[in-house]
């Protein structure tokens, strides 16, 4: 375990105290300090995550754009966005771009600390009808993964999220534990994984709800290294 203390950095996740409490180990990335492990070895954690795991990805890069010209503007810049709303579109470098509506898309971010697509868009010339949404600070981002994920989220969300009804890449913008949330299905190879993007001010409350729902199935908190093991990266 390294000594990296998230409280020494100017950018902090709302969940950092809860992660410190369980002895998480942090690494510094371009976008902030992220919990990489919550136990001695990432491989054991990965096995736990295969069953049911929860991870905090709030400080990973994240961006969003909205406006009547936003989708066209992104397409002009080489971003692939299809016609369907509430759908994920993969880019050539595996970055995911989520189309939320006719006028909005979101880049939820990947596990590594950097995101070329986000950087490219933020430095590109902005047109009328294209407006940035401060997703990195407006929202928290958690991922729930493992075979028990659908059973667990059934305790929190009224949308049918069973794996044969909510497919890879599907997006649901709905209410989770009475909070507005965006749910994105984004499996780690054969392991089901659902991302949750919600109000950052309620991150602590949401985290507690997820922990409570998880306890029935013996889920646990995992770090980003375990997720990378599952992804095979």
């Amino acid at each position: 375990m390294t000594d990296l203390d998230p409280a020494m950095h100017i950018r902090r996740s709302p969940i950092y105290r809860k992660l410190l409490e369980i002895g998480a180990c942090f690494v510094e990335t371009e976008s902030g300090v992220v919990a990489t492990r919550t136990s001695e070895t990432a491989t054991i954690e990965a096995e736990q995550a295969r069953h049911l795991g929860l991870s905090d990805l709030t400080l990973c890069p994240r961006a969003g754009y909205k406006g009547w010209a936003a989708i066209d503007w992104a397409r002009e810049l080489g971003i692939i966005i299809g016609e369907q709303n509430n759908r994920t579109y993969s880019q050539s470098d595996s970055t995911r771009v989520v189309r939320l509506s006719d006028n909005e898309f979101l880049i939820p971010g990947e596990l590594s600390g950097s995101s070329p697509a986000i950087d490219m868009l933020s430095s590109a010339r902005r047109l009328e009808g294209v407006y940035s949404v401060p997703r990195a600070d407006n929202n928290c981002r958690f991922v729930i993964c493992g075979n028990q994920t659908p059973a667990m989220v059934a305790k929190l969300c009224g949308v049918d999220l069973r794996v044969h009804r909510f497919h890879e890449g599907n997006v649901a913008q709905t209410s989770v534990a009475r909070l507005n949330a965006i749910i994105i299905r984004s499996d780690f190879r054969d392991v089901p994984a659902y991302e949750l993007i919600a109000d950052i001010a309620s991150a602590g409350y949401m985290w507690n709800c997820l922990m409570d729902a998880m306890s029935e199935f013996g889920g646990c908190i995992v770090g980003t290294s375990a997720l990378c093991v599952l992804k095979g990266t």
Binding site: A177, S202, Y205
Partner: peptide, 14 residues
């Protein structure tokens, strides 16, 4: 049930 009662905290809360 679990009596979900959302609460919002400032980043300076603690």
């Amino acid at each position: 049930g679990r009596s979900f009662e959302p609460v919002r905290l400032s980043p300076m809360h603690y």
